[in-house]
Write a protein that binds this DNA or RNA. Structure first.
Lengths: 189, 189
DNA sequence: GCACGACTGGACCAATCGGTCCAGCCCCGG
DNA sequence: CCGGGGCTGGACCGATTGGTCCAGTCGTGC
């Protein structure tokens, strides 16, 4: 069972996440997701009764977990906040350059679409907040004052979000690598 | 003729720009654009032989012209760069709060989709660059050193881009209004 | 070894997609 | 007055969309 059955749902989720990222919600057809994941349509509606919308939310959450992992990987070994933030930018740049599915923010691809977008919007807000919160937590751990930690975390999220979009337009991960230049003066504890 | 004929093409363009912004490229059907603008399908393919893709580019360019106008309106009466940038953020926030069609960046809605996205991507890059360049021009006029002007313009574009996305997720223009807090220290001439 | 649930495979559906085509309208110059 | 082209109106098209449904196939607990 492990090799096939439980793999089905996650294979579906991960394939969907990849395709949604690259081509957006409406730009990705169910047929394509099914073909690439090798899962029949019946299984999709078994695991995700609400269909495409359900799948999109699951894909976004899965992608979000990956992003949180990257944030942790960048900040955990860091000596200070600036170092961690810089590492994060470089990690994202590397992913951007290496994998086509990392060319877009996995969340906004879904956010900018979606039927009855209110529910989607709420999920997106929750996910973005979780990212910000995670960065803030690392900032506190690395010695920033509570207020500064919040500010720096928010600033970093804005920069990454904006830089990601620009990187996609310019087709270069270097945009992400240039982000640390904009980090403001830090207010350490 | 002025009241009807020339209005057709622009009505089409502006309606398309509005809908693409709100619902994305693939999320918006031709039927919807046609219905809201009151233009028959035949006219669309007369003015835009390449169909939807042509229309999307025209819509993006039209929206870009509007954005450049807003940038000018914000910076022209400003006494210094920071003042102009702050005004820009507040202007965008007001539009965000007032009009649903200003909830999304008119360019990325098209960028994140699009068949044969290479051509779309190029147009998006060109438009973003024109925004950045316009801000840089104002920065120079307001006394920033060339290098600082470039940096500040880029920083502002990243913040606006990222803030815009976050504002949409949180459904609040206040995110845009909080952007000025992140402006770094200025290096005046 | 049997029955039952979870899961799969795919046929099938109505709706909608973007796009084509052309008959007619209407305003223009001749 | 008449021809012709820019433009409009809309019928029509094949392809694809997301979604439904169910017969079959397992693995598992009785």
């Amino acid at each position: 069972m492990p090799p096939t059955a439980p793999a089905t749902k996650s294979r579906l989720t991960e394939t969907a996440a990849r395709l949604f990222r690259q081509k957006g919600y409406h730009g990705t057809g169910l047929a394509e997701i099914l073909a690439e994941s090798g899962v029949p349509k019946g299984s999709l509606y078994h695991h995700f009764p609400a269909g495409k919308a359900d799948l999109a939310v699951a894909a976004a959450r899965w992608a979000s977990a990956g992003m949180l992992g990257i944030i942790d990987d960048a900040f955990t070994p860091a000596a200070d906040f600036t170092g961690g933030a810089t590492t994060l930018c470089f990690k994202l740049a590397k992913l951007f350059d290496l994998y086509p599915d990392w060319r877009g923010c996995p969340i906004s691809s879904v956010l900018f679409d979606g039927p009855e977008n209110e529910s989607f919007r709420a999920v997106a807000a929750e996910i973005f907040e979780s990212w910000r919160h995670r960065v803030e937590t690392h900032a506190l751990r690395l010695g920033l004052a509570p207020e500064a930690a919040r500010r720096q975390a928010e600033h970093l999220m804005f920069l990454v979000q904006g830089g990601w979009t620009q990187a996609r337009a310019r087709q270069s991960g270097d945009v992400l690598r240039g982000l640390p230049a904009f980090f403001g003066p830090l207010t350490e504890t």
